[in-house]
């Protein structure tokens, strides 16, 4: 059984808190504001009272309860790290305990994610998976920009939409569906296509812009605004079984215009060239991954590089720009 820091705070008088961590962890991260007893792992099963086991990140205790079939026992989700953060900020981050346990993320990284403002231009094949992954990762606010409506031919690669959504505005449907995944995230929608007149005002309040569009002119416009405002752009593009991803314009790093100067010609878009439904999920999620890495400050990242993923042969090539 799991108990979150917030739940424990509400009912701690009725529970025995058992800290099973080794002494070095207890000394480095003492449990704040709660009385606990210390117990080695092997002895925990002898304690018959209703209890909460605490380890550093809430993972060891979950395993212990299952392995030893412990009754009347809760595991504190997120462990001592999440508890102390809750005591300090009155904010329960235990929902993201499987992320915060990563040394590259930690509580501080999760806070950066929770404070980030992301704009996604295009709610099609790339925008759907990118928005879902960012939302559940804890992104603070999302701004979805698209003027398109859902059509039957979208459904095979845009899993936010269902047959009953056909002819409805994508951003309105997406907000409704995404809100259920994480009701606490602020989701702003702009029911418009990005153009020269509105781009600056739509994108200026972003920490990162995700390019999930399906045409080169929009990519160039996002690149231009991204450079002007010094807001990084996470580029993604698709062709049949292949996808491209790059992180553009981070403090002067190469952008789309350095990769493809002038007005390049690409031939067909998705609708004409075709795309296998699962591919946008992969590429959109790589865009979300790079966004999270950028926000937290994790390297290596696709700055100054373009990733070309081939879903037919499962090869990935990274080319330096």
């Amino acid at each position: 059984m799991i108990i979150t820091p917030k739940e424990l705070n509400d009912q701690k008088k009725d529970l025995l808190i058992v800290d099973i961590r080794p002494s070095n962890q207890r000394n480095e991260t003492p449990l704040n504001g709660i009385n606990s007893i210390v117990c080695e792992n092997g002895e925990v099963s002898n304690i018959k009272e209703k209890k909460v086991l605490v380890c550093q990140y809430g993972i060891v205790t979950e395993g212990l309860i299952i392995e030893d079939d412990l009754q009347n026992t809760f595991s504190l989700l997120g462990g001592a790290e999440a508890w102390n953060e809750f005591r300090k900020e009155q904010k329960d981050l235990s929902q993201w305990s499987r992320q915060t346990v990563l040394p590259e993320i930690g509580i501080e990284g999760q806070k950066k994610i929770l404070n980030a403002k992301i704009s996604i231009v295009g709610m099609g094949g790339l925008g759907c998976p990118a928005s879902q992954s960012l939302l559940v990762a804890g992104i603070g606010s999302l701004h979805l920009i698209d003027n398109d409506t859902v059509s039957l031919s979208n459904l095979h690669r845009q899993p936010l939409f269902s047959p009953e959504d056909i002819d409805n505005k994508k951003v309105i449907v997406a907000k409704k569906k995404l809100s259920k995944l994480n009701p606490e995230v602020s989701i702003k929608i702009s029911d418009t296509f990005l153009d020269e007149k509105n781009a600056y005002s739509l994108l200026s309040n972003s920490d990162v812009i995700i390019d999930a569009t399906d045409n080169i002119k929009s990519r160039q416009l996002i690149d231009k605004i991204s450079k002007e405002l010094n807001i990084p752009m996470i580029y993604g593009g698709l062709y049949r079984f292949e996808g491209q991803v790059s992180v553009f314009n981070v403090d002067g790093s190469p952008g789309y215009s350095e990769l493809f100067p002038d007005l390049p010609s690409a031939g067909d878009a998705c609708a004409d060239a075709g795309v296998l439904g699962a591919l946008p999920g992969i590429i959109g999620n790589i865009q979300a991954l790079e966004t999270l890495k950028l926000i937290v400050g994790i390297e290596p990242i696709l700055i100054g590089k373009i990733l070309i993923y081939d879903g037919m042969n499962h090869t990935a090539k990274t080319i330096r720009l």
Binding site: G237, F260, A266, I319
Partner: peptide
Amino acid sequence: HYESEDTELKDGDEVAFIPPVQGG
């Protein structure tokens, strides 16, 4: 490595041609 200038090729080079893609 992306090359924006015309570059002399050497024996054993690996050359990639990267087209822009529109799909999203």
